[in-house]
């Protein structure tokens, strides 16, 4: 099959790639662009480990065709730290031990960042609602929610 040429911006950098029609954005990111932060937990939209943003909207990249990224702005977990400094969400996840195996973490960080950009002061319930699509088999969620709320407070303080 003939490949399609796709031009996107990924984490602020203009990026071009060739992909087959049946490749998902997740496969493109991981196997073609070697951005292995987003994980494949299920491949069927159930787990959220593959979360990225596409034109500012959180999506499950395992359910987006790579070709649909033409002209789009994409952000992944690799774009969160700036100049070697961790994003406050990443720092709080470390400080508050909000991860164990870490497979869900990149997706949760991206989803939480998308939430805080829309709503800098979410209630605990809003955090839980917003992260509904992100499964974690290890932590029991409590520390994840606490870390997101702490990072939100940090970011509000910094603003």
């Amino acid at each position: 099959m003939s490949k399609t040429h796709v031009t996107t911006t990924i984490n602020g950098t203009r990026t071009e790639f060739l992909c087959e029609a049946n490749e998902t954005l997740l496969t493109v990111l991981r196997d073609r662009l070697h951005l292995t932060g987003a994980k494949e937990g299920c491949g069927s939209g159930d787990c959220g480990a593959c979360s990225v943003t596409l034109n500012g909207r959180l999506v499950a990249s395992c359910l987006v065709l790579g070709v649909e990224a033409e002209g789009a702005e994409i952000t992944t977990v690799e774009g969160m730290a700036e100049g070697g400094e961790l994003h406050p969400l990443q720092q709080k996840f470390l400080d508050l031990a909000a991860l164990q195996c870490g497979v869900c973490t990149p997706g949760i960080l991206v989803a939480a960042k998308a939430l805080l950009e829309k709503n800098p002061d979410p209630s605990e319930q809003e955090v839980r609602y917003w992260l509904a699509g992100n499964l974690c088999r290890c932590t029991g969620y409590d520390k994840i929610i606490k870390a997101v709320l702490a990072a939100a407070a940090d970011l509000r303080g910094a603003a």
Binding site: V59, L63, Y129, W130, A132, G133
Partner: peptide
């Protein structure tokens, strides 16, 4: 319907 990321698509 589903979760937030699904509703966006």
């Amino acid at each position: 319907v589903a979760g937030p990321s699904h509703r966006n698509a």
